[in-house]
Design a protein around this nucleic acid. Structure first.
Length: 417
DNA sequence: TCTGGGGTCCTAGGACCC
DNA sequence: TCTGGGGTCCTAGGACCC
């Protein structure tokens, strides 16, 4: 059994924890540049404010004057999230943070999962000052759905337990497929074309049909909703694969100097985060973007993706980012956003993936040549040994380094590639 | 005037290899 | 003369999530 605990209007609740005068009133938290609504209390929701709505477009809604609003404060939210985790890890054998405001709970073998869920809610509310709801189910997807129902329907008193198949069946009958985790607008539309609207319609579909229309992703959701667990709880967070720092400007930007400033700043921020994570990057993407919301403006949204010498050094990363940005920048455009994305992240203790540089054909050719030379020198067997991975032999020339190949790659390095 | 930011996974299709 | 087929890797783009 899985549980999912989720903070109600999390960012708003974090703010309210330290500002009691905000309690009981409509409150929204806004994104960067105070652009969009990214969290709203039930009172704000009741006024018709929606998630993601541009703040400047709701100014005319009736009752908007009474809505309190705040710019976002991610340090605070991260801190509150850790507090929530600390309360939960004392109650449950395993807690897996899923997002800043959600944690999966391991309820396997707990006879009193329902009572414990209530206890967890109470403690998180009193200690971490965050109101929550809990969903319970035999799979993560069902627990997530149960959580959404606990939030929507007050008669569950904050904990919705969907471990009973009959409870599930009756909920599936009366709930739209769009409520399901992983079913976005595109999937919901495809399902509707098959006459599938409720969750019950969906789970009744044959698996081949699901596979055909919604690929393996839909298939997994289908199995999960049918009670077959495909998504396990994990003890360790997976290794980060990319790291981005991107911002919209608060006004249109035209000069190279302003772009240069922004690119350098974001590269510096990205480098700092990279070092905090203890990682190096072997790839980088830099992009500029004009304003897609101003369709009359000439649009120009170039991007460059390239390999770099594996590093987390600020100056090196800034220099690489600026070189790329300078080549892309053109005068006469009104730029709206720029960003740096660090790719091919790896631990500096392992072999840098840039040794297999998909992004640099010249070095790739050099590697192939070295492989051939290696073959000549040691005979084909040497190459074959070097290219043996736990899963069996694989074509070294055509592979990029992934962590499970580290040993083979190191072996190759020791013989001089 | 003002429309977020940071992620992951999957697929299709091209390039390439033998 | 017959002009293949199995396989991998990579990228771009779509979809989804919070």
């Amino acid at each position: 059994m899985f549980g999912l605990i989720d903070g109600n209007a999390f960012y708003c609740s974090c703010e309210r924890a330290f500002a009691p005068k905000l309690r009981g009133k409509p409150l929204v938290v806004l994104s960067n540049n105070d652009g969009c609504i990214i969290a709203r209390t039930s009172e704000a929701k009741a006024l018709g404010l929606k998630m993601g709505e541009p703040w400047h477009l709701v100014q005319n809604k009736p009752g908007i004057e009474q809505v309190q609003w705040l710019s976002s404060n991610y340090e605070l939210y991260g801190d509150m999230s850790r507090r929530m985790y600390q309360v939960l890890e004392d109650i449950f054998p395993l807690v897996e943070p899923y997002s800043i405001d959600e944690m999966f709970l391991d309820l396997r073998g707990l006879p009193n999962a329902y009572a414990l869920s209530h206890k967890a809610r109470d403690l998180v509310r009193t200690i971490a000052k965050i109101p929550t709801c809990v969903g319970i189910g035999p799979t993560k997807t069902i627990a997530k759905l149960a959580n959404a129902i606990a939030k929507d329907q007050p008669n569950w008193h904050g904990v919705c337990d969907m471990s009973d198949p009959e409870v599930r069946h009756s909920i599936y009958m009366g709930t739209a497929l769009s409520e399901v985790w992983g079913m976005g607008p595109a999937s919901v539309e495809k399902a509707a074309k098959l006459g599938v609207f409720s969750i019950q319609d969906f789970v009744a579909l044959p698996t081949e049909e699901v596979r055909k229309v919604l690929t393996v992703v839909g298939l997994r959701t289908h199995a999960e909703l049918n009670g077959q667990s495909c998504l396990a709880l994990s003890l360790v967070p997976p290794q980060k694969k990319m790291l981005a720092c991107t911002r919209s400007f608060s006004r249109a930007v035209t000069t190279w100097e302003e772009i240069r400033q922004a690119v350098a700043t974001y590269a510096e921020t990205a480098a700092r985060r990279l070092r905090q994570a203890g990682l190096y990057a072997a790839g980088m993407q830099v992009f500029l973007q004009t304003n897609p919301f101003a369709p009359k403006d000439p649009q120009y949204s170039p991007q460059r993706t390239f390999g770099i010498e594996g590093t987390s050094d600020t100056r090196a990363l800034i220099a690489a980012a600026l070189r790329a940005a300078e080549r892309m920048w053109r005068p006469h455009f009104r730029y709206h956003k720029v960003g740096i994305i660090l790719l091919d992240l790896y631990s500096p203790q392992s072999v840098p993936p840039s040794l297999f540089p998909s992004r640099d054909p010249k070095r790739s050719a050099a590697l192939m040549k070295a492989m051939d030379a290696l073959g000549d020198r040691y005979g084909r067997g040497a190459v074959r040994i070097a290219a043996t991975a736990p899963e069996g032999s694989w074509n070294m020339k055509r592979s990029r380094l992934s962590p499970r190949y580290t040993t083979a790659a190191e072996e190759m390095l020791t013989v001089g590639v």
